[in-house]
Amino acid sequence: MEISFLLIIFLLLLLSAILAISTGSASIPPGDVVNALLGNADTLTKTIVIDLRLGRVLLAIGTGLALGMSGCVVQSIFQNPLAEPYILGISAGSVLGVLLSLVFLSSFEHLKYSAQLFSFIFALLTIVLVYRIASVGGTINPATLLLGGIAISALFSAITSYLIYTTFSKNIATILFWTMGGFWQANLVSGILVFVVALISGICMLLFWRELNALSLGDHFAMNVGVDVSRARTVLIALVAFSVSFAVSFTGIIGFVGLVVPHIARSIVGGEHKKLLVYSGLVGALLLLWADILARTLIYGEELPVGIITALLGVPFFLYLLFRRRRLC
């Protein structure tokens, strides 16, 4: 019964991916799409189908995977159903990094992917900084980590706001994109990179399934069954930071997914993390893939920011779950 459910989701994912590859502002008939994928098409069609669309699909799936699984991990490590992957300051660091690359590296305008590089580096730097702050005084406990993350996020947001104010007119486009998120910059290389990084991080997170299970029931419970709580937490946060920072460097800050997807997955398969992690990843990938399809097709000729769509898709489903739970009580 479980295997069949997994198969259904995989199938859904595949079908959605096919739909996504067939959709786009250039109308390409399905037959030509298939031919292009196989290499039998003119350069223009191949460029659009393989480089742009396939790249986009991979980017969406990879980001969904990373955000979904990271959201699940973060909620379990902190035993907090409101936790999401940008906790501990990843989003604040990423946006600040991008702005700094624009403001101070203007002479390096030619440096390709400088925004992505800075976003990634700063997001990771933020985590390290938060960890440093939290470890002052000996042991690191979740509460201190969270507070440290809030403090650093606030600081970086303030700096970001100042930079936005002073350089508004020049950098408004980039800022707006970064805070709303989207996949329009995707290409085959970035798509595959994000997908692969998300996959590898996800598998590494899966290796910690027992620790995650035990941690969900409390630090003491976990310690009593032999889990090195601080080490597990550190490694898992590192995995979350790495995969999310990497994805976000290419897509901007897409919110809501990391928060709501684990809850959706949990209502389907319960709290056991081998299943929960996998389903969180798959549901996240599905959600983002559909968010991208809708973002491109809802209004003819325009592309809406993905973050809006994920909220529109996710919230009703989330409310439905809440409602169902209420009634069961």
């Binding site: 250039a26 950098n171 408004i172 707006l176 994109f177 329009w184 000729g301």
Partner: peptide, 27 residues
């Protein structure tokens, strides 16, 4: 598209010989 996001696919399918862009559209 606009300055926040360009419709890369449409631009490519229009097969332009040159694109006149503006400062701030780095991505």
């Amino acid at each position: 598209g606009d300055f926040i996001s360009l419709d890369v696919e449409r631009i490519v399918s229009l097969q332009p010989d040159v694109v006149f862009a503006y400062y701030g559209q780095k991505a």
